[in-house]
Design a protein around this nucleic acid. Structure first.
Length: 420
DNA sequence: TCTGGGGTCCTAGGACCC
DNA sequence: TCTGGGGTCCTAGGACCC
């Protein structure tokens, strides 16, 4: 059996913990650049605010209903996530941290006679230790645990825990789940399946295997079989190295000159380099891209990317920045209003297995010492204390974050003070 | 009349997730 | 005025090889 523990309205709940005046009030969290809604409290959901909605579309709704709106504060959410996961680890040694706000727990080898009660214990412990409300779904496969979690959230009479175990419980759960609500079935597949008369999870579980494989590939087939209670999706409790690393951002304001964009791209490349060094890998390929604002159809549109292969895989900020800026230069064209840029590194290899070339022109050991020093300083004194000059200082491109809450848990000078 | 066949590697694109 | 960011996996098709 697996449990899926999923935090309720995670970002909104994080904001609420440190600002109890927000309890019972509608709260929304915005994406980077204060663009779209990415988390809502139940009260905000009741107002009809949906995921992914551009904030400026619902300006009036927000004003009329006194909705509290926050920029996303990832330092805070990341820290709270860590606390939740630390609590969950106490319940089982095998845990798969699936995202910032959810984790699968495996109960393999553990005997629980009352899964409902066990789920309650997990739920109450997380709430007591962290203040974050969670729901727990328990079932024989990960896909069914997802469904169980959804039902736990929907059916309040179950007090946040829902168990799917017997054949008839599976059938009941599948009957009351729309195909579009199944984990692994996105909007494209849902529409396709609806066209073929498959509307519920139960319909899908009964669809012929060969047909499913033909049109939804082996991924869709795994999902189908998981719905019948056959585990097909591996439980991944080992943290694997990432295979691609990206840093991409929209600009706070439109950019038309190469100067600020070049600084932005240098900063993104530097961020990728840091992430590479953190997981001890080097990249063999770098992609840099820029594009205009696709929503402004009245503007001329332009989008390009450039892929560059390195002679020797690297995680040096200096090298990655150099390549990113060369790449940018080759795709930048004057006369467009640029909205977004990004750097993606791939072809990652462990840094211990980097093979050099005979004519390597880079002093790798010097780079390595410099990067180690840079990482140490930035770890000790805070992010980006030391920067590569080409990353710029005025930063006219930086994103908007107008409604940021304090870093209650990660910065001493922003810690919560209580007057007694 | 008949035009080799099978394997591997790589990439682009499309689907999905939170 | 204002529309996110960071990932994964699979498949099809082309290049290449023997």
């Amino acid at each position: 059996m697996y449990a899926l523990v999923d935090c309720n309205n995670f970002y909104a709940s994080c904001e609420r913990i440190f600002n109890p005046g927000l309890i019972g009030k509608p709260i929304c969290i915005l994406s980077n650049n204060d663009g779209v809604i990415i988390s809502r409290s139940d009260e905000a959901k009741d107002l009809g605010i949906t995921m992914g909605q551009p904030a400026f579309f619902i300006k009036e709704l927000i004003a009329d209903n006194n909705v509290y709106v926050f920029s996303s504060n990832y330092a805070l959410y990341g820290d709270m996530s860590q606390r939740v996961m630390d609590t969950l680890v106490q319940f089982t040694p095998t845990i798969e941290i699936y995202s910032i706000d959810e984790a699968f727990l495996s109960f393999k080898g553990l005997e629980y006679y009352d899964l409902q009660a066990h789920g309650q214990t997990i739920r109450e412990t997380v709430k007591r230790n962290t203040g974050i409300p969670v729901c727990v779904g328990i079932a024989p496969t990960k896909t069914l645990a997802k469904i169980a979690n959804r039902l736990a959230k929907k059916r309040m009479e179950n007090k946040g825990v829902f168990v799917i175990s017997t054949a008839s419980e599976i059938e009941d759960a599948l009957t009351s789940t729309n195909i579009s609500d199944v984990w692994g079935i996105g909007s494209q597949y849902a529409e396709f399946l609806n066209r073929h008369g498959i509307n519920t999870a139960l319909d899908y579980a009964k669809a012929p295997e060969a047909w499913v494989k033909k049109y939804l590939s082996v991924v869709g087939l795994r999902t189908r079989n998981e719905l019948s209670g056959i585990p097909c999706i591996a439980f991944e409790d080992q943290v694997e190295d990432k295979k691609n690393i990206a840093t991409t951002r929209s600009f706070g304001d439109i950019q038309t000159e190469i100067g600020p964009i070049s600084e932005a791209v240098a900063t993104f490349a530097g961020a990728c380099a840091e992430k590479l060094r953190k997981q001890h890998t080097c990249a063999s390929t770098l992609t840099v891209f820029i594009h205009t604002n696709q929503f402004r159809t009245q503007d001329k549109q332009y989008a390009r990317n450039r892929v560059m292969q390195f002679p020797v895989a690297t995680n040096s900020s200096l090298e990655l920045i150099k390549y990113a800026q060369i790449g940018l230069k080759s795709i930048f064209k004057k006369g467009y209003k640029y909205k977004k840029a990004g750097v993606i590194v791939s072809g990652l290899v462990p840094d211990s297995q980097v093979s050099g070339t005979l004519f390597d022109e880079v002093n790798r050991s010097a780079h390595k010492r410099l990067m180690t020093a840079l990482d140490e300083i930035n770890t000790t004194f805070g992010r980006e204390k030391v920067r590569v000059a080409s990353q710029g200082f005025d930063r006219s491109w930086k994103l908007r974050q107008e409604r940021l809450s304090p870093n209650y848990t990660t910065k001493w000078n922003e810690i919560l003070t209580i007057n007694v």
